[in-house]
Amino acid sequence: MTIDLGRGLMLRNPVMTASGTFGYGEEYTDFVDLAKLGGIIVKGTTLHPREGNPYPRMAETPSGMLNCVGLQNKGVQYFIDSIYPRIKDFDTNVLLNLSGSTLEDYVTGAEMVDVLDKIPAIELNVSCPNVKQGGMAFGVTTAGISQVVSEVRKVYHKHLMVKLSPNVTNIAEIALAAEASGADSVSLINTLMGMAIDAEKRKPKLSVITGGLSGACVKPVALRMVWQVAKAVKIPVVGLGGISNATDAVEFMLAGASAIEIGTANFIDPAVSAKVADGMKAYCERHGFEKVADLTGALDS
């Protein structure tokens, strides 16, 4: 079931948990044996602490949800001092999702995380739709992504995964720019920018009006984008967006993903990630795949 994503990032199986949906892993240990997962990607972290956006930050939508949390976190230094010591010995890969408002923030944050022995990779978040500056701004143009990825690459020596925004015209171009700038892998998709309105009150449901859409409803869009990107790049693609069960996960692998992330489904079934890992193994046995890695791109089209 092992997956080699390159530059030292080896996963026990293709299943990881998506940033912002699994806390720091500790919140889920009553439900999931973390040793059953390929990795966990912890909450989006920025160089400086952020209080995030005001409440309300969430609106349920048909088979999905919008959020505008806005990267609430205590900053990289707090992560290093107070959180890392608690989670570094988890029996799974712990990846940090790193975000920023400026190029300097990304570079300084990456330098600080580079020295943490037990963090084998960062997922560079250039696609958060909920912060005013930076965030998605870097991720929606080839120039922006080339700049941030190449600068971070200079200081970060481990596996550099770049999380892509779906809020673009041509995601394959963005992925190619990330690859050319030194990314070891790309993960996609981050949330789709959306909006919800309370008609009775004639008010937006979210405090900052727009937010990121996630959950089962985004799966067809995510699957299509993973397929497009996997055809375009040579580096591994990590697929996410609405994966709720092992069948969904297999579909992403067939579309070209080398690994997958589970996000919003963790809210609905806190034990889902381990179930997906078991279910993928069962699929491989049932269909005669010796290695789960052989599912990648095995779409019969």
Binding site: T21, G23, Y28, P56, V69, P270
Partner: peptide, 9 residues
């Protein structure tokens, strides 16, 4: 959403 302190909503 999550009820567990993960999503911060």
């Amino acid at each position: 959403a999550c009820g567990l302190g993960a999503c911060l909503c």
